[in-house]
Amino acid sequence: MSVKQTFTFISRSPAYASQRASLCLEAALAAAVFEQEIHYVFMDDGVLQLLTDQNSQAIGQKTLSKLLETLPLYGVENIYVDTQALAKHALDSADLVLDAQPIDDSQLAALIARSDQVLNL
């Protein structure tokens, strides 16, 4: 078994109301520390995590988008965003804090098929 595995993280939930978005990110950062191959996909309402101008101080939480911006520093460069979800919310890449590659269902299917581990939150 190779030491380096391919991990795909699929983050499907918005930030703040539940822990799902931040748990998914924490798991990816932990995997990144072990220098694994990481793909991070914002799918469905998960794309809302990427909106610019977030400030969650007033609700007593850390601003998730600020933490998402650290992904490239952890060597996580393969970041994708579900194009259908962006369209559904009438958003485009200028609304997002990270440069993400567009991904559709068939590209995500192919990514899952070549991953050793998939975390879907």
Binding site: L29, V33, E35, K62, T63, K66, L67, T70, L73, Y74
Partner: peptide, 8 residues
């Protein structure tokens, strides 16, 4: 960023 970076 409200985050202490790990080594990497």
């Amino acid at each position: 960023h409200q985050h202490s970076p790990a080594t990497r």
